[in-house]
Amino acid sequence: MSEIDDYIAAAPEVVRERLVAVRETLLRCVEGGTEAFRYGMPSVMIDARHGLHYATWKKHLALYPIYRGDEAFEAVVGPFRAKTDSVHFPHAKPLPLDVIELIAEVLNARR
C-alpha cells in the first residue's frame, strides 16, 4: 500500500468514498498527473513543483492551493473558498465533482 492508500484507509468510512472520488477526478483531469504524498496530504502533481493537495478534516474535505481565477472561475469556486488559496467541501453536503473537475482543468491548463 502507498501512503495515499494508507491515508484513505485511515479516514472514517463515510469519508473514504469522497477521498477516492477526489483522487480519481484529479488523476483523470490533470494530464500526466502523478501521485505524491506531500505536507502530510495526498497530492496529484501537475509538474515537479506544483500539485493539488487534498485532505479530510472533521467537517470537510479541502483542496490546496487554489489560487484566484477569472470572474467565471470565481463564480463557481468562490462559494467554496475558506481561505485565500483553499476550498472546503462540507461532508454534510454532496461532493461537487464538477467544481473539482473545473479546478483541476484550469490549473492543468495554466502550466
Rank of each mutant, 00 (worst) to 15 (best):
G33A: 10
A11D: 05
G51M: 13
F73W: 07
A92Y: 05
P79D: 08
E17T: 14
L61M: 14
P65S: 06
D98E: 15
G51F: 14
T84H: 07
A104W: 02
Y54S: 06
S43G: 05
R110K: 15
A72N: 05
D47E: 02
V77S: 11
H88D: 13
V87T: 11
N108I: 05
G69Q: 11
D70N: 14
F80G: 05
Y67L: 14
L19V: 10
L97H: 02
E71C: 06
T84N: 00
G69Y: 02
S43Q: 03
E24P: 08
K93C: 08
F37D: 01
K93W: 02
P42E: 06
D5E: 05
A62R: 11
L19H: 12
G69A: 13
H53T: 12
R16M: 03
A109E: 10
T34N: 06
E17R: 07
V30G: 11
A104L: 09
T34A: 15
D85G: 11
I46P: 10
M41T: 04
E3C: 00
W57P: 03
E17C: 03
H50F: 00
R23I: 03
R23Y: 04
I8N: 02
R23A: 06
T34Y: 07
Y7C: 02
R110A: 12
G40W: 02
P12E: 14
E24L: 13
G51K: 15
Y54I: 01
S43P: 08
L52M: 13
R68D: 14
I4T: 04
P79T: 07
G40Q: 08
K93S: 10
E3T: 03
G32A: 02
